[in-house]
């Protein structure tokens, strides 16, 4: 039983990473229609920067995390402004030509950022220095909760809740959606489209970067390929949850993490990714609009 709870917690913590990353990934996809292959690199870079902020600059942990998140956001803005902005002249963000173009430029950035990250880490798998991050363990009856897992779970709740609030309750959220659907019209309607786009990109990069930092700590692995693993599962969470649905993405991420840990524990460790992806495919077939998504819609 203890093992069960410990694994459940492990699964949730792992899933929280997927959910967090997925929220960042889904944000650009839902608002700007961009399938961003470079998203994983934001996570890698945020983790690398946060690690060096501690290692080389000796910054305290919370500050280093902030610096990392900032780095993730800034890389995202850079990619957006160099790689996506020139393509927006095609018109509305969800046009096929624009979507394809953005996918390609994001692939270009993925290649470049990952390769540059390889130089930054000396092509090695590094780690946050031991003792540089909270390592306390909270006890609650039979359950033990390591501080990093607590932070990760809290992070998902705070970020997920915050994004949901921004999306549904603030003018900024409405503006993000408006810009995503039609930047030209939104610009005419008084929303400064460019500012909103940059802010959206920054948020997306920062959130995925945060997931990268947490993942780098919990797996004791900071390397150029850190983002790729997160990207694949975060992507699955986005699809299962529904790409325009933050709540769905968070829940789907948690579920995928738990599923993965339990499959590895009780079934077969080599098929554990298989279960996650099979779930993904199942969802696409049965509920193509995600967990809470409404049924199909037509565009005339």
């Amino acid at each position: 039983m203890e093992l069960f709870f410990a694994q459940l917690l492990n699964g949730c913590a792992l899933g929280a990473l997927y959910g967090l990353f997925g929220i960042g990934f889904g944000l650009v996809f839902a608002t700007m229609g961009i399938l961003n292959a470079a998203q994983g690199a934001y996570a890698s870079w945020a983790a690398i920067v946060a690690m060096y902020a501690i290692d080389l600059l000796g910054l305290p942990f919370p500050v280093a995390v902030l610096v990392g998140i900032l780095a993730g956001g800034m890389v995202a803005v850079l990619v957006d402004q160099i790689g996506f902005e020139p393509l927006r002249r095609f018109g509305p963000g969800l046009h096929q030509a624009a979507m394809l173009g953005a996918l390609i430029t994001s692939i270009a950035f993925w290649i470049m950022l990952e390769s540059a990250a390889g130089f930054a880490t000396g092509q090695q798998s590094l780690a946050f220095p031991p003792g540089s991050y909270p390592a306390a363990v909270f006890h609650a009856g039979p359950m033990m909760l390591p501080a990093m897992q607590a932070i990760t779970l809290a992070g998902l709740v705070v970020v997920g809740g915050g994004m949901h609030w921004i999306n549904t309750r603030t003018r900024f959220g409405a503006a993000m959606r408006a810009v995503g659907w039609d930047p030209v019209a939104a610009g005419l309607g008084g929303v400064n489209a460019r500012v909103i786009v940059i802010a959206t990109a920054f948020l997306s990069g920062g959130i995925s970067g945060f997931a990268g930092i947490l993942s780098g700590i919990s797996t004791a692995n900071v390397s150029a390929s850190l983002g790729q693993g997160l990207m694949l599962k975060g992507f699955a969470a986005v699809v299962v949850g529904g790409y325009d649905d933050i709540r769905g993405t968070a829940i789907a991420g948690l579920a995928l993490g738990v599923l993965e840990v339990f499959c590895a524990q009780y079934l077969s460790s080599s098929w554990r990714d298989g279960f996650a992806y099979a779930l993904l495919l199942g969802f696409l077939m049965l509920r193509p609009r995600g967990l809470f998504g409404s049924a199909g819609f037509t565009r005339a």
Binding site: F29, L232, F235, Y243, D273, L280, L284
Partner: peptide
Amino acid sequence: HWMALASLALVLI
């Protein structure tokens, strides 16, 4: 859009 995502999932599977 979903088709693009689904085909990416297919590659992973």
